[in-house]
Nucleic acid binder design. Structure first.
Lengths: 204, 204, 204, 204
DNA sequence: CATGAATGAGCCTTCATTCAT
DNA sequence: AATGAATGAAGGCTCATTCAT
């Protein structure tokens, strides 16, 4: 009986925390002009204002958690997809593909990760930059390997990786904000080819 | 005498507005963590808080104006530079070159244009997006022409233009935030070639 | 068995109440700047927050009880000490002596009784005043007797008793807060003589 | 004209600050159980909440100012009164007299100075203690002089001065809280004689 | 026109108390 | 009875905007 109770409570609390995070995500992704106060988030989560502070130390911690959570989800997905391939170009292409798919499927995820938040204090924005830098770093690893294998020409890898990530950020955000392209497949192929060509991959 | 007075007054007012905009720029470009209150901006402009509202309807209008102003300056510079060339690729390359140069020379300009501001309310961020969309539109014009002349292969022009702008945003911001690359020339060439190759330009 | 259980339970409850009071004392005597929330007190007492309200109606009642408890302890000690003497002056001196000793030995007792608490709501402070008034009243009883026996000159007994208590409050608190005097015996004698002389006792 | 304006405004502001301080005094002296929030103080002062922060950095600064102000007023009065006498005993007596008079005339002054505030954070209470210590220090100066001139017997001056101040604190507070004595003159004389005798002054 | 003091809604956070388990 | 999560009223403070001078 006691165990049951504990389990139930733990489950409930997990639920609460999840609901707060979900509410926060939903409110944050709306982005524009919305009321992102703790009061509003708590209300959306269906809890009292004070309850929020049982689950998060403060507002910053909440946002921090939201961002990290999304980031981890994304990395997980990419990792899994990449593991299916051994060729670096294939890995890179898989990363691009899954990135686009994931972001487009879960637009809120994209909005939060790719856009910087005005509502949120600056420490946070640094975190977003950190994440973009992370993505760039991962891309660099691939590019170094490609260059070593002479699959791409000599170039400033740091710049290329940055540009690479930049194309995705911009394109995906534009899709999210202005609606997806009519001919999605073509758009999708263009973006991937843009980057593969940009890197200097010989197209057969 | 009376005319003189009036002229003086108009001049004075122009001065005032200019000074407010300058102060706002200076404060906004510091971006991170700073006090961007109207009081602070007014103080920096050497006017009283209330005076601000004689020149701008509200804070949003001010930021709006600052952003547009910077944007217009940038377009002016690009236009002038492009006019020196007739070949579209040359025009495009000139645009890229002058963009990088301008942003790197006046980093505050880049910070304000390329970064989204946490201090500023959300309506504003939409404006930034609008501006990026403008840049994308201009790029598209070039790309359409290039495609018509069969200088680049068939592709989703909208996507390519977006990717194109995205590389610049990301790369320039990274330079501004983490410091310029050691081998600037190489980095610079990589970025330009990345995009030219990405677009599908045959490299001689 | 059943009886045993009941006894155990009652004992347990007594224990609980005692432990809460002890925890409250320990936390209150730290006084300055500490967290005196019910949560903190409950934690220190090893019980849940809600449990507190099974033993005390509210926070005020708790503090009330703590104060009264300490007060009763003090009176008990004084009473016992006084019973050893028959001469009123001796009784008075004994009271003073034991008061100082007790307070200095158990400083937390003094802190709680003599200082008014910033953490605690105002109704409480009235209680402290009540207790000081009690001490004054007891002193008055002695003084009336002394005056009847012509051992002290005519004077406003209420004032003298109040002054009398005031000297102790101030001196003991100063010792607690700033450290005891170097020459404790001399200090101690000075305080007692100050009051005996103040009352008008002829010093032999 | 301009000067006039400035003067008027300065006067008005002085008025505001004065009104805030007055409101704060009035609210603080009620002491018991009252709402001492900035909102309440502002309301009593007839200003908006935010206006308060134009005159005081924060709540602590306000209380600090109130306390210091009262303290300075008191010292000023004492100093002036003492200057009329040259004999130390006369000075001491004059201090006592004026202290009692002042406190009884302006009871709010006494309440704030002699009582420690529960509403107010601890840093403040330290300040009250500081002030009591100041008073003790001044008393000590007199006592040292009296002892040097052999006008009082050997004793622990620190203790005597502390006891001295303690009698006043207690007696005046009791008068404020429980009402003044019926035979005020007798009470007053008793308190003064209590202390003079306590110090060991030979009564002629 | 210019000023800058005044406004007050709104934000984040705490904590005594309640209540479902 | 015991638990501790949940509640929500307040509190101190900020800042875009207004308004009397």
């Amino acid at each position: 009986m006691v165990y049951n109770k504990t389990e139930k409570i733990i489950e409930k609390q997990q639920n609460r925390k999840t609901r707060i995070l979900k509410a926060a995500r939903e409110i944050l992704e709306k982005g524009t002009n919305k009321d992102t106060s703790i009061k509003a988030i708590a209300k959306k989560a269906g809890i009292a204002t004070g309850t929020f502070y049982l689950y998060f130390a403060d507002k910053e911690t909440l946002i921090d958690t939201v961002v990290k959570e999304i980031y981890v989800e994304l990395l997980e997905i990419i990792k899994e997809e990449r593991s299916k391939y051994s060729d670096i170009f294939d890995k890179l292409e898989a990363s691009m593909e899954i990135c686009i798919k994931t972001f487009m499927k879960e637009k809120h995820l994209a909005k939060i990760l790719l856009e910087h938040f005005p509502e949120v204090n600056n420490a946070l924005n640094c975190k977003f930059t950190d994440i973009e830098n992370d993505l760039i770093r991962f891309t660099k690893d691939d590019l170094y390997e490609l260059r070593e294998q002479n699959l791409i020409p000599d170039q400033d890898i740091q710049v290329s990786a940055t540009a690479f990530v930049g194309t995705f950020r911009q394109v995906i955000l534009s899709w999210i904000n202005s609606g997806e392209p009519v001919d999605y497949d073509r758009a999708y192929k263009t973006l991937i080819q843009y980057n593969l060509r940009g890197l200097g991959k010989q197209i057969k």
